[in-house]
């Protein structure tokens, strides 16, 4: 009950953010966006024909009315039809979102888990050679471009070694899933690991320095117990926050590169095609839904805080 009330209050708080995101995307993509009048007209149109098409497209309406229409589309999940394929945008999303999730989930989870593991290792040996090796490798990892990693991995595993497919997504059972998901997963883990390790190391090093860690040692706790109960459990808030806020980033930006490069029919590929062909209904839907996802994540994140830290009560959660 408390959680429900809290969620509703948070949802209300998310409204300005949603309005802002939709306003920006509306202004940039619709209001100042490409004028589609001429695409719908025959050659040498008359002034009347032009006016008719413009009113059909709603171009003659005032700014706020058009923005209102845009919001209504978003609220009813009615984004219209893709400019390039003519398919309903909702149908496209229904088909592609599961592919993207299946493609990215393993890499995302592995990137976080390995990052935490390496962060713990480095934090425990802080200042020693293990720490220096881990942080050094993290900086190297951070310095490699995602695109370069994708190209190199595809080349290595797909072309030179020939172990995995170069392109496509022909998944029908577990072996074929593993066959197609491995190289993209390796690439996304490689790219995420540098940043994740560095971030988690910094967080965990801070927790390692707490008084209660010293207390635990003074009472004979083992390293594993200390790392789990004193370090990790106390670092859950930054860990959860980072994980949660990486989700939209990975789902949109990560999938964009991986899917377009490996030719995998997910949201990222659809978005990429929409960017290159200027397919506005699709882009509007993706931007709008990402904003909704962000607000949702804000709320879930705050509820998770409560779960991980007994000192936080939902009534007065302050999100940084």
């Amino acid at each position: 009950m408390e959680i429900l009330k809290y969620t509703l209050r948070k949802l209300a708080g998310g409204i300005p953010l949603l309005l802002g995101v939709t306003l920006v995307s509306f202004v940039l993509m619709v209001y100042f966006g490409p004028d589609k009048t001429w695409e719908l007209l025959s050659k040498n149109p008359t002034a009347e024909e032009i006016a008719q098409v413009r009113s059909q497209l709603g171009y003659d309406q005032p700014f706020w009315v058009r923005y209102g229409n845009y919001l209504r589309e978003l609220a009813t999940l009615e984004f219209g039809y893709s400019d390039s394929t003519g398919e309903r945008v909702t149908t496209i999303l229904q088909r592609t979102v599961p592919v993207t999730l299946a493609l990215l989930a393993p890499g995302f989870v592995l990137g976080i888990v390995l990052g935490i593991a390496l962060g713990l290792l480095a934090a425990w040996h802080r200042g020693g050679w293990i720490d220096r090796a881990v942080t050094g490798l993290a900086v190297v990892g951070m310095s490699v471009s995602f695109l370069v990693v994708i190209i190199a991995f595809q080349l290595l595993f797909g072309v030179v070694l020939g172990w995995f497919p170069v392109r496509g997504w022909n998944v029908h059972d577990l072996p074929s899933y593993l066959h197609y998901v491995t190289v993209p997963t390796l690439a996304s883990v490689f790219v995420a690991l540098g940043y994740n390790t560095r971030f988690f190391r910094a967080v965990l090093v801070e927790e390692m320095a707490r008084d209660h860690v010293r207390t635990a040692r003074a009472f004979g706790a083992s390293p594993v117990e200390i790392l789990r109960k004193n370090v990790l459990m106390n670092a859950m808030i930054p860990i959860v926050t980072r994980t949660m806020f990486s989700i939209p980033l990975v789902v949109i930006s990560g999938s964009l590169l991986i899917e377009s490069y490996f030719g995998i029919p997910g949201v990222g590929k659809v978005t990429y095609d929409a960017i290159t062909s200027g397919d506005q209904p699709v882009l509007k839907a993706v931007i709008g839904l990402t904003a909704v996802m962000f607000v949702g994540i804000l709320i879930v994140n705050d509820i998770l805080y409560k779960f991980f830290d007994p000192r936080i009560s939902l009534g007065r959660t302050a999100l940084q």
Binding site: L17, V24, S25, I252
Partner: peptide, 11 residues
């Protein structure tokens, strides 16, 4: 800041 942070960069 919140608005700009919640729009995916490439989009």
């Amino acid at each position: 800041k919140g608005v700009l942070d919640s729009i995916p960069f490439y989009l």
